[in-house]
Each structure stands twice: as C-alpha cells, then as structure tokens.
Amino acid sequence: MNENPFLGALDWLADPMRWSGPSGIPVRTAEHLGYTALGVLVAALIAVPVGLYVGHTGRFKGLAVGAAGVARALPTLGLVTLFALLVGIGLTAPLLAFVTLAIPSLLAGAYSAVESADPATVDAARAQGMTEWQILTRVEIPLGMSLLVGGVRGATVQVVATAMLAAYVGSGGLGRYIFQGLGSQDYPQMIAGSLLVIVLALVLDLALLLLQRLTAPRGTVAP
C-alpha cells in the first residue's frame, strides 16, 4: 500500500478479471451509460417542451429561471440519499434524482436557445406569414440548436456525476468501484474507479461538444 497508489490503480485496471463478469468494467460502464441516457431522456421530455414554450412566449420566464436556480442549489448527494430512503431500492429512486438534477440545464438550454434568436429575425419571419409553430421549428430552434445541445451537455455531465453517487446507496455503475474501495481501504481501486468515471465523463462531454459544434447553424458562424 505504500507504493505509488497510481501504479496500484494501473495494476488493478490491467487485471483481466476486471474486464468480464456481471461486476466487470464493461457491464458497469454500460450500466452507467444506461442510467445517464435514461435520466437525460426523461428529463428532456419534461424540460425541453417547457423551455421551448417559455422561450417562445416569454411567459412564466421568471418562474422557470427561479425554479432552475433553486434546483441548482440542491445538493446531489442529498437528493440521491433522500430518494433512496423514501422510495427504496431499485431504479426509481436514482432516476428521480437524475431527472431532478438534469432539468435545470435542459430547461435553461431550451429557453435560452429560443430566446437567442434575434427578435428582428423572428419579427420578419412573422411578417412573412409564418405561423407561430413554423417560427419555432424553422427559425428559433435551428438558430438555437447548439445552445439546446449545450443544455443536454450540461445535463449529461450532471447525471454522470449523480449516477456515480447513486452507487453509494446500492445502484450499479462505475461508482461501485470507488465505494467498494472506500469500504475496504483499497486506495488503488478508488483511483481506478475514479479514472474510469473521469474518462467516461470526458468522452461524453467531448462527443456532445462535437455535436454542439456540428449543430451550429451554417451561415451564422464564420465559414
């Protein structure tokens, strides 16, 4: 244990045993990705339509901004443990925490995407005879798409972190390695688990960053 813990972590990762079976790295990674995708998806189904509505009409904006602000102040670990005690073991409790914590980013992304459209452009589109729905889908959403994806990116980062903490109350995912290591005073294993989570988070973040760049509307960025 007194040797360099990072070398120990590499040894841990290099052990072929870690790469197979129901608690192997591939399965834990898949679990982690599954939680993240499910959490972001459910949150998006709720937050994106609300955000688009708020952004397009300007109604309830104060309420949305306020709610997002309060939700941001909620401690992740607190929600995870609270839902675990209230709802019990299973997928529902962590999912509730994921959705609650993913909503602020998605809501802010959706309404700022719509709001970012130049009011003069929107006015011109209306004057040409576009319906409100056409203005939303053909002008505001395409122009704000990268901000919307930015919201998805923020939510994803948040849920990846939360999914890791959910392992503390018995869920699967890569957080398991950290908490097992913590329980057995195995610092190299904690480091290995941490590295895996970091790699996953960075890969997802970079992928979404790339998507964000790709969805920036042509014509509005320098060619």
Binding site: D118, T121, G129, T131, T220
Partner: peptide, 22 residues
C-alpha cells in the same frame, strides 16, 4: 393573419433575413 401576411410583401430595415438560410 397568417394567410394575409403571406399575400403581402414585407421588406424591413436591416433586411430581417433568416441568417441560417441561403
């Protein structure tokens, strides 16, 4: 209003073109 607007040409200051369309 939508039908009406489509039947009337409208040209505005700073053109009001859609920046993401050719």
């Amino acid at each position: 209003p939508v039908v009406l607007r489509r039947s009337i040409g409208y040209v505005m200051q700073a053109s009001g073109l859609l920046p993401h369309r050719t």
